[in-house]
Nucleic acid binder design. Sequence first.
DNA 1: CGTTCCCGTGGGAACGTTCCCAATTTAGTC
DNA 2: GACTAAATTGGGAACGTTCCCACGGGAACG
Lengths: 354, 354
Amino acid sequence: MSRSNVERRGAGAASKPSRHATIIDVAGKAGVSKSVVSRVMRGEASVSPSSRAAVMAAAEELGYRANAVARSLVQRRTYNVGVMVSDLHNIFFAEVLDGLNAAAAERGYRTLITTGNRDPVAEERALEQLLELRADGVVLAGARLEAKVVGAAARAVPIALVGSDLRLPGVDVVVDDDFRGAVLAVEHLAGLGHRDIALIDGGQGAGAAERRSGYRAAMAGAGLTPRIRIEPGDFTEGGGYEGARRLLSGPRLPTAIFASNDQSAVGALDAINEAGLRVPQDVSLMGYDNTALAALRHISLTTIHQPRNQIGKMAMKAVLRRIEHPGSPARRHVLAPKLIVRDTTARLPSRRMA
Amino acid sequence: MSRSNVERRGAGAASKPSRHATIIDVAGKAGVSKSVVSRVMRGEASVSPSSRAAVMAAAEELGYRANAVARSLVQRRTYNVGVMVSDLHNIFFAEVLDGLNAAAAERGYRTLITTGNRDPVAEERALEQLLELRADGVVLAGARLEAKVVGAAARAVPIALVGSDLRLPGVDVVVDDDFRGAVLAVEHLAGLGHRDIALIDGGQGAGAAERRSGYRAAMAGAGLTPRIRIEPGDFTEGGGYEGARRLLSGPRLPTAIFASNDQSAVGALDAINEAGLRVPQDVSLMGYDNTALAALRHISLTTIHQPRNQIGKMAMKAVLRRIEHPGSPARRHVLAPKLIVRDTTARLPSRRMA
DNA sequence: CGTTCCCGTGGGAACGTTCCCAATTTAGTC
DNA sequence: GACTAAATTGGGAACGTTCCCACGGGAACG
C-alpha cells in the first residue's frame, strides 16, 4: 500500500507538465467528434474514409499519442504483465525475459520490468509498483520475497514464479528439474570412468539443494556412495576457487569435479591450474547453467543447460491463461535440463582406473 | 453488463477482470467520505486520529491498494521514468540501471524498464509503450533508434541517451570519453615499452569509432604512426579471435594487442594461446569496458573501466532536472574512463626492444 | 457572549479514454 | 418515391483518483 507518498517530489517544486494532445484536440482539428477519433485510433472499421483521413492527419500534426493511462482506467485492464527481476546482472534472467517477452507479444500483451537488486525490501517495492500500476499479471523472477508478500499479491492478480519455489494458491511455479540435471552430470562423469567425483556445493542458492540431492542419488545409483564428497560453496567464482583448493589439497584427489554452477566452475578451473593440473587430462570439470561464460572458447565448459527461454515462455503462458480464465488453478511446471558436452570433461586414463 | 466479446487483440476472449477494492469501498467500510480516505492514503496531516485508524483498518481488511492509473490520470504525472534498454544480456546496462534506479529513488521517482532486444522495430515499440504509459521522462540505453524517432519522442517528454550518441534538441547524452580511454590504453602499453601495438576494431559498435581515433591519436603522440595497425572486429568473441589470428599470421608480429572491448579481447586470448604464445610474456593484451569477464581470475584482463553506475546516475539526474524544470536545455555529459591494470599486460622484454 | 479562525470533513468537478445508445445519414429495395 | 436496413456519427456516463471549495463546529479572543 502506498501510504508513503508524502514527500513524493524531492526538492524541486514540480512545475506544470507539458500538455500532451488529447483525443478532443484531435477531434476539434479534424472536425469530428471524440468518438470518431477513438474509433480510428483503435482501428475500428465503421468510420468513413474521409473521417479516417482527417483524423489521421490531425493526429499526425498534433503529435497525438494514445494515453494508456486513461484507456486502462476505463477498460480496467492494462494488457501489461509486470516482471519483477531480482537481479538484472544475472544473465540467466535476461534469457528468461526473452521467453517472457516473446510469449507476451504473441498474445497481444506487453511486459513491464522492474527490479529489486536482490534486496527484499526493494523487491517488495518493485512488486508493489507493478500492482499499483495495475499490471494484469506478474512474473516474479528470482524473487527473494516472503511467502506472505507473494501470497498477498496473488490475491490481487495472477502470479508466476521463476527461479524460486513457493507453493501458494494462485501462484504458478516454473522450475528446471535441478535434481535431474545433477543426475545427468554425475552420469556423464561416471560414464567416462570417473569414480572420485566431488561436488562443489551451492549453499543457499536457488536450486542448490536439489542439485546436491541429485548428486547424492546419482552417486548412489552408480555404486559410489563411499566416494561422495561435498565441498561447501556459494555459487561464486571465489567460492569455487576455494572449494577446489580444498579438494585438491586433500588426501585422495578427485578425478572429476562437479561445480554447482558455471561461475564456481570457473573459479575451480583456476585452482586446478594453479595446482599444476590440466583440465581435462588430469581432472574433469563440470559446471551447471550453461551461461555465456561456459560457452567461451577460452573456457569451453561441459555443463548442464536449463531451457531458459522456454522457462520464460511457460511462465508467461501460465500467467496469461489465468488472466483470461480467472477461475483456473495455478500449477507447478517442471522442465527438463540437458547435458552440454564441451572440452573440460574426458575419459579417465585407464592406468588410473584401478 | 457482460461485454459481448472484447476481442481487443490476441485470440482469447477477455473475461471480466477481478475487481480491486476502490477508495469508495474503503470509505464505505470506514464510515467516512472518499476524501478522507484519499487524505489518509496520501499521508496528509489534517485527518482526525479516529478517522485515520478506521480508514487504515478498512483498507487493510479489503486489501486496498492505491490505483496508480487513476492517480496518474488526474495528476497528469506518473513519477515513473521509463528506461528502454536495448539489450538486457549486456551486463553493462545492468550496472547503468543500478545508477539510474538509485538516482530516481533519491528523488521519489520509480523506474520502469522495457526492452527491444537489439531490434530497432521492437525498440521503437518499447519506447512507444513507455510514452503511452505517460512516463514523465525516458532514458534510452544503447538504443539503435533513428534520430527521427528519438526526436519525436523528445517532443513529448525529456529524453536522455546512454551508450549512443545523437545531437538532438531536448535530448541529454551521457557518454564515457572513449577517445580518452583508448589513449589511456595505448599510453599504458607504450609506457611498458611496446611499439607494435595493434588494435582490434569494434566496427559499428557503440564507441568504436571514438576508440579507434583515440588509438590513432595516441599512437601518433608516441611517434608510432607507422606502426598503426587496425584489424577489423565487431565487439564479439569470434571477431576478436579472427582478428588476432590475422594479426599473428602477418609478417610483423605485434607485441601488444588492444581489443576494442573485453569480449573480443577474450577471443583474441584464445587465438594467441593457440598460436603457442603466452600472455603477457610474449604478447600483451588489453580490453575495454572492465566487464565481469575481465575481472575473472582466470582471465584477469587489463582493461579500461567506464563509470557505469555514475553514467546511470548522471542520465537520471539529467532527465529529472528537465522534468522538474521544463524549460532547461539538454546537455552532453562526458565522463572520464579509468585504466585497470591486471595480468595481461607486461613490460616488453628488453631483448625485443630494439 | 458574539466574532473570528482553524480544523476536519464532504461533495463535485476534473483527468482522457472507452463503451453504449440514440440520432442521423446513406444506400438499397420494391 | 416511400420505406427499411445499414453505415456513420455524436454525446453522455463511466473508470478511480486528486484537487478545490464550501460547510459546520469548537476554541480562542476581545
